[in-house]
């Protein structure tokens, strides 16, 4: 029983990280149609920035973390303006910016290695590594932080899309780009904000994860893969899909790892099998996109 409760916490924690990564894909994908595989490197860069703001400059946690996220959001917006927008405006097929962003993965990674080195760097946690005792189990403090912050960010993004006019505007751009333009929605601004927002969201995942593991220039790729799997499982349409996909992926990983009578080396491959299965059986994921009636 203790095991199940501990696993529940573990699933919520990992699910939160995966959901944030999936969301980072989503906020760029929907308005622009671009699958941005560089989300993992955004998480890496934010982790390194937090090493600087929280570790080197010793800022208090919230300003330091926010500054790190602002930095990576700026990089997201700059990337959009410098590499994606010229392609879109020249009428390039959608594959072109996707490939450019794949190239940016390498650029970001090398920049991180050059700027911060190839060693693992420590990222301070906001509330330390203590435990919250709740009856039969103790929840690690950082796990609680991850669950809370990812939950808030996911709920906030959902509220943005569903309850504010600018969120509706982003949806409108996703539904019909030309019509959205005719409404007077500034398409360039939407694209820039979607990249900045995606970067900030991926950055949050990085800053939440790094205190437990470290900031490391190779940490981006696994996060990008997990996020993409969660996105596919949950459905590429909506925030709810990201949350569900993240939780399903995390639950599958952890339950298989804990209880399946197979060597853990094989258990590692199970979630990817799950994603393949989903793509075969239900390409739209668990929750269909809103655009489909």
């Amino acid at each position: 029983m203790t095991d199940l409760l501990e696993l529940a916490v573990s699933i919520l924690e990992a699910g939160g990280i995966y959901a944030l990564m999936a969301l980072a894909y989503l906020v760029v994908l929907r308005p622009t149609g671009i699958i941005n595989f560089a989300v993992g490197e955004w998480a890496t860069l934010a982790s390194f920035f937090s090493v600087a703001t929280l570790g080197w400059w010793n800022l208090p946690y919230i300003p330091g973390a926010v500054l790190a996220l602002a930095g990576v959001a700026a990089i997201g917006a700059l990337t959009e303006q410098a590499t994606v927008r010229p392609m879109i405006e020249r009428g390039a097929p959608i594959l072109t910016p996707i490939l450019i962003l794949l190239g940016m993965v390498v650029v970001y990674r090398e920049a991180a290695a050059l700027g911060f080195g190839t060693q693992n760097l420590r990222v301070p946690p906001p509330l330390g590594f203590g435990r919250i005792d709740l009856g039969p189990i103790a929840i690690p403090m950082q796990s609680a932080v991850v669950i809370a912050v990812s939950g808030i960010m996911l709920a906030g993004t959902w509220a943005f899309f569903e309850r504010t006019i600018w969120g509706k505007a982003f949806q409108a751009v996703a539904i019909d780009r030309v019509a959205a333009g005719l409404m007077g929605i500034n398409l360039r601004l939407v694209a820039a904000f979607s990249f900045a927002g995606g970067a900030a969201i991926a950055g949050t995942a990085g800053v939440l994860q790094a205190p437990l593991t470290s900031a490391h220039y190779l940490m981006g790729l696994p996060l990008a893969i997990k996020g993409f799997s969660a996105l596919v499982i949950g459905g590429v349409g909506r925030v709810e899909g990201c949350i569900l996909g993240g939780l399903v992926l995390a639950a599958c990983e952890r339950l298989v790892m804990r209880y399946a009578p197979i060597p853990s080396g094989f258990a590692i491959g199970v979630p990817l099998l799950l994603m393949i299965l989903f793509l075969l059986v239900r390409p739209t994921g668990l929750i269909g996109a809103r655009g489909r009636t």
């Binding site: 573990s10 924690e13 990992a14």
Partner: peptide, 14 residues
């Protein structure tokens, strides 16, 4: 076996 990039190792340690 821990997977590279794993976000937590609770099940294995359980």
């Amino acid at each position: 076996t821990f997977e590279r990039g794993v976000t937590d190792v609770t099940p294995a340690l359980q």
